[in-house]
Structures are given as structure tokens and as C-alpha cells.
Design a protein around this nucleic acid. Structure first.
Length: 1043
RNA sequence: GGGCGUUUAGCUCAGUUGGCUAGAGCAUCUCGUUUACACCGAGAGGGUCGGGGGUUCGAGUCCCUCAACGCCCA
């Protein structure tokens, strides 16, 4: 071990070297570990598990910085802190990545591999990427208890999932039903709504004629319907007309008139045109629409062409009388709106599609065709029998799968649902009654509204990667089969209510003939099996029950995260100690998907809310106000920021941006790998595979580089200059500490008596007390920006710029040296601790360096410093040290100092030239300033020659005034009269403005009557300002005379 | 379409319950290497607080309205 020598400390913090070393020291020292046996009060945070596939982005950096800052403060405050880490298996996202890779590298689909082999591959992928993402979190400095790292698909979580599913199944809160899903025919899976994007494409709008069966005299022989998807007509089960076409047209017209009032001139013509068209329509079409409505009411039926199926004419508001023919064909199994109509009108739903997107047996001769082929044939066939009326070109919105980039087909499928009514209510109550608080409070509303809808939660996903649903099913063709089957199951060895639960799902189709035709069973028997009962599962399979292939929605396992990670359903010591957790920190887009579901699952499984507080942090956008994403090319990799600025700067920058109301805008720059020049990213250059540096003109590659040539170029980092401030602050702190250590030679710890404290010592103690109190309160309230602003201001502009500067004089004085050293060590100690939660690495490094010279610290009481800052005690200073009088005294000094410096600047007097000055002020003010008078010399190279009521202005002087003082700088032989006159004139104008505004206020009788105290304050400051004005006017006159 | 939020200096943001001449960082300009730090120090310039209306003795702050932008849910 080398001996520590402060002279060896470099002038810059080598964060790249220190970060890994320090992190390993913490981790191997067990500092991150929560102890379930501890006597200390617990404080728990569970990480929002990042997707295993994803690389870390700045949103993660922000999210984890905030969690780490909080958990580090709590750890220092003496809590038994546990930050629970882990990753999410992220169902479709992960499977899609691996499948795409399989396709690209080997030209295979998942079906070529089979379920087991594919899942095996995904696990391997997961191992690789999980290590990467956890490594990234560690680089940020996250003090998670890494030994406890969980994965939503590992054994512990799987047991919790299975246990929960079984419990809900048994309570009949899980059931199977039909639902229209977004079907990706390429991946052959459902896709959630947020994985569907809409694309505008050129398409056609076909108008068909459906014959009316037995039209009454005067009634039309055909009904016209229009569609952009002709092939879906094979699954039509009705045609709808509006029940009140007259009123519907009126409403549209009145909406248009409203719009006309508001619209600009350019829009007016188009709206007026629409109104006219509507009026014409009312004349032409309304009688026909009303007739159709009456026909529907009368039970008229239509003949569905090509299929020769009778379908009803129904009334429903989904039909839009203002559009097309005013009638709409209803295909319940393949259109979300039609699905709703079918539910309202009790229509049959005919599924016409196979899982691969081809048409099924329901479509007769069209069976086996793709949608595209079927479209062509349907149109041709209709045309052949003269039922195709017209075709028009039109732009249509086509839903696409975000994963496979292929069109989405709406599809009716068997799905498992969680019944939400009771569960939602419990989660609503938890927030309404205050067991869970959400910060900022405005997010409560979205949470409550979403839960209030109590929509059942579809939890099946047609994937292979995930928790396979633990239900075994057998279809029974007749009623007679059901009871014997159930009895046989109950008679199986080991059957027990704790092992298996049975549900009977009768077929929706009650007509036996139809069931036979559609090959539907009479009923399905579902058996849910608890975990760890493989023999029973085998027995079920022996009886012909087949396990459900679908897996659960990822959010199902995420919903259990706060308790599953602690070992539930086992009653582990961890669960007893750390549940409910304390705080959850996450982003707003998953409040309903994740936060709400955790609350209701926590209540269901544990009987207690999963966390007491939820903090929703801002989202990060680029300089254009767009969300950052890899697909836009504007995503900043936190590791690039760490490489350039250091982890502490990244963290401080993040926390500094984290304000209450605003999302965070972070202008994005490229950094040239050749010359390190940084320049703004634009919407143009951020999508290029290579960019040339405007400074050195050399080219570098970006994330888009694909060609061999582009990829051979060095890659440019995507960063943000916004972290410079934080990096500079890190450097400032580093150098202030370096200075301290260079001056602490011969340090001896011993208590300082209160009587020996100087004014500046008392000021520092007062400031430390105030700042530590504020920072603590801010962090407890999630006011990260306020906390970091306070620390920045204090550390830089008070501790460094004043206290350390003043200590320099005291170090030079042998008699004062030892005392000054002790005060410096003490205040630096406090400052480091306050900064540690936000800037853990540099504070740990300085802390341990400091320990080499000052192992014992403190002013009133001396104690041996903790070995590591990470678990040093959080500063809790005696509130009695807050001293407003001292802080005011200090600000007098500061304002005098800044006036002196301003005079130096405006008079262009070099720093090396010593000046003399006087301060004229009341006697009591003079007494306050006296002890600080010596510091004018160091900080402004100015000598205070006279102080007090008797002070007079020298013959040639520059004058400044404050409310309490007049400052005269003797400028004999130095003065730039013109500059001084200019300055005085400006000052005079300012004062006059201020005075007249005060006078105006005071002459306002209502104001003086309403706020007498405030009026008095203004009177005082008015008289001060008038005095200042008199002084300035006097000086101005003298100076002008010399011109 | 419904809900939430934002609009303050060239840029990114603060601005408590309405109250004295609206603040910070970066950028710009001027000066400066005095025993920590040029990733530094001192100073300066720069804002009719998105538009309009209202309440009030007094509005960046409260209310109404319009506009633009962002997010969430349909």
C-alpha cells in the first residue's frame, strides 16, 4: 500500500479509473445488502425491471438515478435499506427479437425449431443481454442488492405467478371467453394495441348491392354497402342502418356549423362545402334511409351474396347516415366496431380466418385463399352477378404490426381474462383512502379513471416465451360427458382443492344443430393445477386434457413484482421485513399497466398495498420535444455520457433536470470521434449512416451504418452538452477537496469551543444547517431539482467562493491554522455526505482520501469518521445553528464586495493594483462588518480605510450605494470619469424608477389600508432608496464637474 | 373526441400564499493565470413572462378565452 500524499492528487478526478474500483469495493463490502434480521427500520424500493432485450437508455438512467439517490440517503439515515433489482422477460418484445434474428441468420421460423428449442434460444439470449443491462445499471452506480437479482420468468417468480393464477381461478376471477384481438398473421400471435401502428395507404372503396329478401311494394330491391375490405363480406352477419337518421344528420350539421364559426378563412370554404353536401343529402337520401330503418324494424332480411346466407337488417348508431350509402355491413369477427354492434344487437360472429391469415372452411369455395387472393375473387364474383356497383380510390388507414411490419387482422379468439370488478375497487380504495400516495398528485386521476372502468383484463398471449397458462382443457361434445369427466378428475390420486380447481365453460352457441355444423363442443372442462404437481398434470393429460398453449401477459408477472421478488408465497423473512415496500419510482406511461395492477395484486395476494408512495418522474425528450428512441436516431446512450462526463455528472445532471411539472428537454449532439468536437443533431443528420464533422471535416459512422465502408469508420457518440455543468461541478468539488487536503497537513482533531468560532465559522455552520435540512426535505418530497440546485449553489458559491477563500488567510496565520483546519475538515465532511446520494463515486473517493489525513473529525465533538461514506451517518445538524443575523451580516459583506469588484471592472483597474475604500454606514452595521473587513483584501485586493458613520468620500472616488451603505473607492490618479458618470447615471435612473414605483404604491390608499405591514416595509425601503439617490446625485454632480 | 400538462433571456429551466428593480446554468461580450480548479475567477449586456380579455389597490402568479406544442386514453 502506497502512502497517501496530497501532492499526488491530480487536478482532475479520474472517474473512469475510480468508478469500477469504488463500485467493487462497495459491492464486495456488502454495503448494498438489505438484512431481513436487522433491527433497523426497513426501507425498500423495487426496481421497475427493464426489458432483458433492451439496452439502457437515458430514461433508465434517470429512473435509476432517482431511485439510487433516495435509497442512498435512506441508507445513510440509518434505515435497513433494500433496493431490489431484476429484469423483465418482456414477452413479445423478446421473442420477436430472437425470431427476427433466427430468420435473418438461419432463414428459419419458430415453427422450424419448435417450442422447446425456441424457448431455449431465448434463454441463452436472455443470459447474454441480462448481464449487459445489469452491468449498465452498475455503471450508473446503482446500489441494488445485486445478490437478490430476480427475473420475472425465474423459478421464484414462476411459483408466485402460478400461485396467483390458481388462486384467481379458484375464486372464479379468471375465466375463458372470446375476444377480438389484433392478430399478426406473420408471427401468428396477438399483438397488444400499443404494438399496432396505423399506416395510410392507397386503397379502394367498393360499393356492393345486397338483395333484399321479399321486399314489400315500394321498397328497394337492393341495399348498398361500401367497404375497403371486400373479402370480409364472407363473414357478414348483418347490415346496419341508423335508428334515427334525421336526428343524426341534424347533429352532424350543427357540429359543422360550430366548426364554421371557429374556422379560419382558409378552412371556411371547405366546411361550407360540407354543409351544402349535407343539405343535398338530406333531400336525396333521408327518405330512403328512413325507409330502410322501417324495414329493419319490420324484420326484413337480406341475402348475403356468394354465401347465400340470410342476414338481418338491423338498427344501430354505428351506421353513419352522412357517409356513403348510409348503411354499413357488419363483420363482427373481423372488425372492432362491428364486434361492438354484434354484441349490442345479439348477432352471430363468424370467424372466417385461419391463424395464418388464410380463409377457413366457413368461407366455402374461398377456403384456403389468402386475404389478397380472396379479395380479388370476391370482387370478380360479385361483378359477375352484377352486384358490384362502383369502385372508388381512397386513402385508407391500415393497421400494421410494429413487430413484423405486416398488416394486422382483427380476429376472434379464445382468451383468458381476469375479472376486474372487485380487484379494481380494492386498488381504487387504496389510493382514495391514502394507503398509497401518488406524487405528483395529478396522476391520481388517470389511475382512478382507468381502474374505474373495471374492464376485464385479457391475459392470454399467443407466444412461447412467458409463463404458460397452467390450465388443462377437454371439450365435451354432449352434456352426458361432462359430469363423469369431472368426477373422474376428482377421483384422480392426489386430487385436492389445494392441487387443482375445475371450471366448466358452456358453449355460447346453445343450438345443438349449429354446434354440430360449426364443430363446436357442448362445453369445455378447464382444470387449473397448482405448481409442483407434475404427476397430477400427467394424469390429466392421460385423460385427454390438453394444456393451454398460451402464455400470460408480461404484466401479469410484473404485477406481482414487489412481493414475488421477496419470495411470496413462501412466508420468507424478507417478505416479513421488507413488504410492503416504501417507494416506487417510475414513469407515467405505465401507471395503469403496471402500478395499478401491482396495487390490486398486492392486496389480493398479501392483503397489503405493495408500496406506500409512488413517484412519477418526467420523461426525457430531445431538443425538438420528441421522445428519444433508437428508431429516431436521437437516443443517447448513458454509457457514452458516462465515458465523456463520468457517472456522477450523468447523475447530477439527471437529478438537476428533474423538476415537478415539466418533461425534460435535452438537446442532442454528436461527438466527433476524431477531434472530439460536438455539434447539434438535426432531424436530417440523425438518420444518416455517416456524418462528417463540421470542424475537422472527417467522417464518422452512426447507429445506422450498414455498409462495410460505413462501418469501418469510427463511430460518433450521441451525447448532450447539458451534462457539462454537472461535470464542471464535479471538477469544482474535486479541486476544493484537493485544496483542503493540501492544507490539512498537521491536522489534529480536538473539539472547538463555541466561543472560539469566528463569524465566518458561524455562518458556515448556519448555512450547513439550513442546507442539510432543505436537502433532506427536498429529497423526501422527490424534489430532486431543488435539492441539487441548493447543493450546487451552496458548494460552489458559498463553500468554495467564500468560506474556503477566507480560510486561506487563516491557514497563513499559525495561530489560527489548527482551528481553521478542523472547521474545514468538518464542513467538507458534511458537504460530501449531502452530495453522496447524487454523486456517489467522487464523494466516496474524496471521503477516503480525507480519512488519510483527518481520520477523526468534528468541531464540538470529535469522532472517528466512517470508513466509507456510503453508510456514514446522514448530517443532522442542530437547528439552533441556524442564525439569520449571521447570514444577514454575511450578505452585507457580500454586497459590499460585489460593489467593489464592479468598480474595479467598470474602472478597468487591474487586479494587481491595490485600492483603498471607505464604507459609510450606521454604527451597528459598521460593527457587523468589522470582523469581515480583512477579507476585502484577499477577495478584491482592496483595503478598508474607514468604516462607520464618520466615513467620508475621498476627493476623487467612485461611489456605490446599497440600502445600508455607501461605498467610496479612492481613485486618485486612476479614475475614468466618463465611465463613472455613465455608471452613476444608470444607477440614478434605476433608483428613480424604483422610487417612483414605491411612491405610486404608497399613494394608493386602498393598498396602505389593506396591507399596513407591507406598506411600512416599502416606506423604509423608499427612504433608503431616496438616501441612495441623494448620494448618487451628489457624486454625479462632482464627477460631471470634472469632465 | 375526452383528460392531463407546457408556453418566462438566444438555448434549457426556476419563480411558494398575488407585493419592492422577474432569477439560474449554458451561450455572448469585457477584463483577468492573486499559493485548489481555465472543466477557473471578476463583471456586463440580454426578458412588454404565448395572444386577448377579466378579477384586484396590485397579476409571471387567480379566472375566462384563443393559439401552439407534448403526453395519456378512446
Amino acid at each position: 500500500m502506497t502512502t497517501f500524499n496530497p501532492n499526488d492528487i491530480p487536478s482532475r478526478f479520474d472517474f473512469a479509473e475510480a468508478q469500477n474500483r469504488i463500485f467493487q469495493m462497495w459491492e464486495s463490502g456488502g454495503y448494498f445488502e438489505g438484512d431481513p434480521e436487522s433491527e433497523k427500520p426497513p426501507y425498500t424500493v423495487v426496481i421497475p425491471p427493464p426489458n432483458v432485450t433492451g439496452a439502457l437508455h437515458l430514461g433508465h438512467a434517470l429512473n435509476n438515478t432517482l431511485q439510487d439517490t433516495l435509497i442512498r440517503m435512506k441508507r445513510m439515515q440509518g434505515f435497513n435499506a433494500l433496493w431490489m433489482p431484476g429484469t423483465d422477460h418482456a414477452g413479445i418484445a423478446t421473442q420477436a427479437v430472437v425470431e427476427r434474428r433466427l430468420k435473418e441468420d438461419e432463414g428459419k421460423t419458430r415453427h422450424d425449431l419448435g417450442r422447446e428449442a425456441l424457448v431455449d434460444r431465448i434463454w441463452k439470449w436472455k443470459e447474454q443481454y441480462e448481464a449487459r443491462i445489469l452491468g449498465q445499471l452498475k455503471q450508473i452506480g446503482s446500489s441494488c442488492d445485486w445478490k437478490r437479482t430476480r427475473f420475472t420468468l425465474d423459478d421464484v417468480c414462476a411459483r408466485a405467478v402460478r400461485h396467483t393464477f390458481f388462486d384467481l381461478f379458484q375464486k372464479s376471477l379468471i375465466y375463458r371467453g372470446k375476444r377480438l384481438v389484433n392478430w399478426d398473421t406473420f408471427l401468428q400471435t396477438t399483438v397488444s394495441d400499443d404494438e399496432v401502428f396505423s399506416k395510410t395507404v392507397k386503397g379502394q372503396f367498393w360499393h356492393f348491392k345486397y338483395p333484399v329478401i321479399d321486399p314489400q311494394p315500394g321498397e328497394p330491391e337492393f341495399v348498398i354497402v361500401a367497404t375497403t375490405r371486400p373479402e370480409t363480406m364472407l363473414g357478414d352477419t348483418a347490415v346496419a342502418v341508423h335508428p334515427e337518421p334525421d336526428r343524426a344528420l341534424d347533429r352532424v350539421a350543427s357540429e359543422l356549423r360550430e366548426k364554421l364559426k371557429k374556422s379560419s378563412d382558409s378552412e371556411k370554404a371547405s366546411v361550407e362545402g360540407q354543409l351544402e353536401a349535407l343539405a343535398a343529402r338530406r333531400t336525396d337520401m333521408l327518405p330512403k334511409l328512413e325507409q330502410l330503418r322501417d324495414m329493419a324494424a319490420d324484420g326484413r332480411k337480406l341475402m348475403l351474396p356468394l354465401m347465400d346466407r340470410e342476414i338481418p337488417l338491423v338498427c344501430d348508431v354505428w351506421a353513419k347516415p352522412e357517409l356513403g350509402a348510409g348503411c354499413v355491413k357488419i363483420t363482427p369477427a373481423h372488425d372492432p366496431n362491428d364486434y361492438e354492434v354484434a354484441k349490442r344487437c345479439d348477432l352471430p360472429m363468424i370467424n372466417i380466418m385461419n391463424r395464418d391469415g388464410t380463409l377457413n372452411v366457413e368461407t366455402g369455395v374461398y377456403s384456403g385463399l389468402t386475404m389478397k387472393q380472396a379479395r380479388k375473387k370476391v370482387v370478380e364474383d360479385l361483378d359477375a352477378i352484377q352486384l358490384l356497383k362502383t369502385v372508388e380510390d381512397r386513402e385508407i388507414e391500415l393497421p400494421q404490426s410494429d413487430r413484423s411490419k405486416t398488416p394486422i387482422e382483427p380476429y376472434l379468439a379464445d382468451q383468458w381474462f381476469v375479472a376486474m370488478s372487485e380487484l379494481s375497487q380494492s386498488a381504487i380504495d387504496a389510493v382514495v383512502e391514502g394507503q398509497v400516495s401518488i406524487t405528483p398528485k395529478r396522476y391520481e386521476r388517470g389511475y382512478l379513471d382507468w381502474l374505474g372502468e373495471k374492464r376485464d383484463w385479457p391475459v392470454s398471449r399467443q407466444l412461447w416465451w412467458g409463463h404458460q397458462i397452467p390450465v388443462w382443457t377437454r371439450a365435451c361434445d354432449s352434456e352426458a360427458e361432462v359430469q363423469p369427466l369431472i368426477e373422474a378428475i376428482q377421483a384422480l390420486p392426489g386430487f385436492d382443492k389445494t392441487v387443482a380447481a375445475i371450471q366448466l365453460e358452456p358453449c355460447e352457441e346453445t343450438d345443438a344443430d349449429k354446434r354440430a355444423k360449426l364443430e363446436l363442443p357442448f362445453a369445455s372442462v378447464h382444470v387449473c393445477v397448482q405448481s409442483g404437481c407434475e404427476e397430477f398434470e400427467n394424469a390429466l393429460e392421460g385423460m385427454g386434457l390438453i394444456r393451454e398453449e398460451d402464455v400470460l401477459d408480461t404484466w401479469f408477472s410484473s404485477a406481482l413484482w414487489p412481493h414475488s421478488t421477496l419470495g411470496w408465497p413462501e412466508q420468507t423473512p424478507e417478505l416479513a421485513c421488507f413488504y410492503p415496500t416504501s417507494t416506487l419510482i417510475t414513469s407515467r406511461d405505465i401507471i395503469s399497466l403496471w402500478v395499478a395492477r401491482m396495487v390490486l395484486m398486492g392486496l389480493n395476494n398479501c392483503g397489503e398495498v405493495p408500496f406506500e408512495k409512488v413517484y412519477i418522474h418526467p420523461k426525457i425528450q430531445d431538443g425538438f420535444g420528441e421522445t428519444m428512441s433508437k428508431s429516431k436516431g436521437n437516443g443517447i446512450d448513458p454509457l457514452d455520457v458516462i465515458a465523456k462526463f463520468g457517472a456522477d455528472a450523468l447523475r447530477f445532471g439527471m437529478a438537476h433536470l428533474c423538476t415537478e411539472t415539466q418533461d425534460v428537454r435535452l438537446p442532442v449532439q454528436f461527438e466527433c470521434p476524431h477531434c472530439q468536437h460536438t455539434f447539434d443533431q438535426t432531424k436530417k443528420n440523425r438518420i444518416l449512416p455517416k456524418v462528417s464533422c463540421p470542424s475537422c471535416k472527417k467522417e464518422f459512422s452512426t447507429q445506422w451504418a450498414e455498409s462495410e465502408e460505413d462501418r469501418s469508420l469510427d463511430k460518433g457518440a450521441v451525447i448532450s452538452e447539458r451534462f457539462e455543468t454537472a461535470r464542471n461541478f464535479v471538477n469544482k468539488l474535486w479541486n476544493a477537496s484537493r485544496f483542503a487536503m493540501l492544507n490539512l497537513e498537521g491536522y489534529e482533531a480536538s473539539p472547538i469551543s463555541e466561543d472560539d468560532l469566528t463569524v465566518e465559522d458561524r455562518w458556515m455552520l448556519s448555512r450547513l444547517t439550513t442546507v442539510s435540512g432543505n436537502v433532506t426535505a427536498y429529497l423526501e418530497d422527490f424534489k430532486y431539482a431543488d435539492a441539487t440546485r441548493e447543493l450546487y449553489e451552496f458548494a460552489w458559491h458559498q463553500f468554495c467562493s467564500f468560506y474556503v477563500e477566507m480560510l486561506k488567510d487563516r491557514f497563513a496565520d499559525e495561530a489560527k491554522r489548527s482551528h481553521a483546519q478542523r472547521m474545514l475538515a468538518y464542513s467538507l465532511d458534511c458537504l460530501l455526505k449531502l452530495l453522496h446520494p447524487v454523486m456517489p463515486f467522487i464523494t466516496e473517493e474524496i471521503w477516503q482520501n480525507l480519512a488519510h489525513i483527518c481520520p477523526e473529525r468534528g468541531w464540538a465533538k470529535v469522532e472517528t469518521a466512517n470508513r466509507c461514506i456510503i453508510d456514514a451517518a446522514w448530517p443532522e445538524l442542530n437547528p439552533a445553528w441556524r442564525d439569520e443575523a449571521i447570514e444577514n451580516q454575511f450578505s452585507l459583506y457580500q454586497s459590499a464586495l460585489s460593489d467593489l469588484r464592479e468598480i474595479r471592472n467598470s474602472q478597468n483597474i487591474g487586479n494587481k493594483k491595490k485600492v483603498k475604500f471607505s464604507i459609510k454606514c450606521a454604527a451597528d452595521i459598521g460593527e457587523l462588518l468589522q470582523p469581515l473587513g480583512i477579507y476585502f483584501s484577499r477577495m478584491a485586493n482592496a483595503e478598508l480605510v474607514e468604516l462607520g458613520p464618520e466615513a467620508v468620500a475621498p476627493e476623487t472616488s467612485a461611489t456605490r450605494t446599497t440600502a445600508e451603505m455607501e461605498i467610496y473607492v479612492d481613485l486618485d490618479g486612476l479614475i475614468d470619469i466618463e465611465a463613472e458618470v455613465k455608471r452613476l447615471e444608470k444607477e440614478k435612473a434605476n433608483l428613480e424608477k424604483s422610487i417612483s414605483s414605491k411612491q405610486r404604491q404608497l399613494s394608493n390608499e386602498k393598498f396602505v389600508a389593506a396591507k399596513p405591514d407591507l406598506a411600512n416595509e416599502i416606506r423604509t425601503s423608499l427612504s433608503q432608496a431616496e438616501n441612495q439617490l441623494a448620494t448618487i446625485a451628489d457624486s454625479l454632480q462632482k464627477m460631471t464637474a470634472k469632465l
